[in-house]
Nucleic acid binder design. Sequence first.
DNA 1: GAGAATTGCGTAAACGTTTTCGGAAGCCTC
DNA 2: GAGGCTTCCGAAAACGTTTACGCAATTCTC
Lengths: 344, 344
Amino acid sequence: MKGIRRLAEHLNISIGTVSRALNGRPDVNEATRRRVLDAATELGYVPNQAGRTLRQGTTNAVGFMMESGADTSGNPDNFFFGVFDGVQAVLSRHQLDLVVLPCATDEDPTEYLRRMIARRLVDALIISATHRKDPRVELLNKAHVPFIALGRTGTPSDHPWIDLDFEGVANRAVDRLVAKGHRSIAVAVPSSDINLGVIFLQAYKDALARHGIAFEQSLVIYTSSSEQGGYQAAHQLISMAQRPTAILLVYELMAIGFYRGLRDAGLNPGQDVAVIAFRESPLSRFLSPALTCFRLSLRDVGIALGESLLASMPAYADIYPQGIVHRVWPMELVEGDSDNARNG
Amino acid sequence: MKGIRRLAEHLNISIGTVSRALNGRPDVNEATRRRVLDAATELGYVPNQAGRTLRQGTTNAVGFMMESGADTSGNPDNFFFGVFDGVQAVLSRHQLDLVVLPCATDEDPTEYLRRMIARRLVDALIISATHRKDPRVELLNKAHVPFIALGRTGTPSDHPWIDLDFEGVANRAVDRLVAKGHRSIAVAVPSSDINLGVIFLQAYKDALARHGIAFEQSLVIYTSSSEQGGYQAAHQLISMAQRPTAILLVYELMAIGFYRGLRDAGLNPGQDVAVIAFRESPLSRFLSPALTCFRLSLRDVGIALGESLLASMPAYADIYPQGIVHRVWPMELVEGDSDNARNG
DNA sequence: GAGAATTGCGTAAACGTTTTCGGAAGCCTC
DNA sequence: GAGGCTTCCGAAAACGTTTACGCAATTCTC
């Protein structure tokens, strides 16, 4: 005899009552509930998830899909782990657990997602590393799996999302640089279709336009979002006929390579080329010169993601009546020394 | 009508046969199997995992538990993702999926693990960030959940594990430094009970002893495994009465802070203080001076973890007949410029 | 060509829960 | 004290699979 039956037998009571007691149903005597609860901890009984899932059609878990090989992996760990922490803080309020689903580098993300959906491991999903054209959205919509995207897509009205304010970042970065006399500003973005890059690039163009600076395609450096990518960006920048006096980097890790690339050529980051990077991380202030960049609370993003996801799950929609969330997450400028020097 | 019943009805066949066909049982006509398989893809049928789990007692998933807040999170991302990739490569051969279980920073890891075990979300587990005294081992043993640890514990014979060769690292690092004339070598380790720190420290002591150098407690700097920790280590080192001429760092991220701390005090890393760090990452070669450190293939570690884990699962033990694995993973020295200068 | 072995399939039980339904007992109301 | 309400609980069905068992039809064996 195992499971709930064992508990019921031990108490001389029916399994139905045990279940009701455990699940906090109102129609059970408080005295019996006590006995059941006590016996449960005594015998170490925990309901079998497969049984519940089968009966209720719900797993009490939500998934966070990430692509280990994606361009976004230029993020230090702490990025995603910070977000996880916030998500969990919300989910745990409702006895929900977070499971992370890492898509292997050699597997197609859409196929992977399809498998995970079919598996019914989770009730809802968070997807990250969105692309402008992201077939996962249609897939999730079609399967009626509640989800939210960390990152916009080309069709932002089709689904809930929370995304960082790349426009604000690009705007303020360009404003700052222009105010210091820079007119020739390069930008380094990932080469793929990934959302971040596309949005950032467009915002950069718009910001230049606001200042009456002509956009030049040659100042856009497509590279990988890693230290290596930053290094290559430096090389590319140095070899330009008219060397730009400033650069925007989308990942802070790129700054490490970029600094090194500049120094190897006898140039000084912050002095000869002003640098502004996108996300603040512990790195930023320990680089020399300290990196000017933009800060956000990862945990808060996680919390927002969690709450917005619950809002799109029928079972919780009344507790989180936010409807479909489309939200641009503001970021705060962190002044470093990497863009201090005036130009001209 | 849903699920397997729908498929069976559509084919005018019993659900038993459908199931057998799908699961590759021998006692089904090849022609029928074809029909079933075709119909399955046509109707997009995928067996409900809860149903199978309930019946078979197996989930076809293995979990990887990590603590987001642990000292080990000073790793740039690629560490765990690299490992995941290897694990998945093995698991996918057997239709197993990997799910990552992130323990929130404010939750007790052992309690978290207990919950995950009770939930029966996975058939087997990989745990990381082991401590010298790690109650999770006993918990897993008692629950009869197959598992493997990435990292030793104080009772290494009680469970399968794969760990990095910290002894080799400490040995070779000290050998190198001594060969260049260093006699006063500091070491920076995390302050907690975490396995890595304890083993590394012991190996450092042993190495010193081999060279007839007296161990001095004052040269051990306990700090957090982050850039910040490295910065503090630098400060601490500088303020020593007799400043050491070399230092061993357990995490490469610490090097960034350490470099900065030295420079802020007018000292040159690599010149005034030789630095050797533990794990190579893309960072290492882009720092100035490039970091001398130790390399390993994360993917290969993941593969080994996956195979050894399967070896401890009854259902796969015959395919991976390795028994209980205790394995120290070798690492390769990567020469940088951070320990070049001779001393004395 | 009779008996034995093999092949292929249908039937039904089982996995561990939750939940609907109904009913027994107790309480209230007048 | 009869009837209605409430409170509490047991019985049993249902969720979607897999698999043990048994049986019919076919093939093999001599």
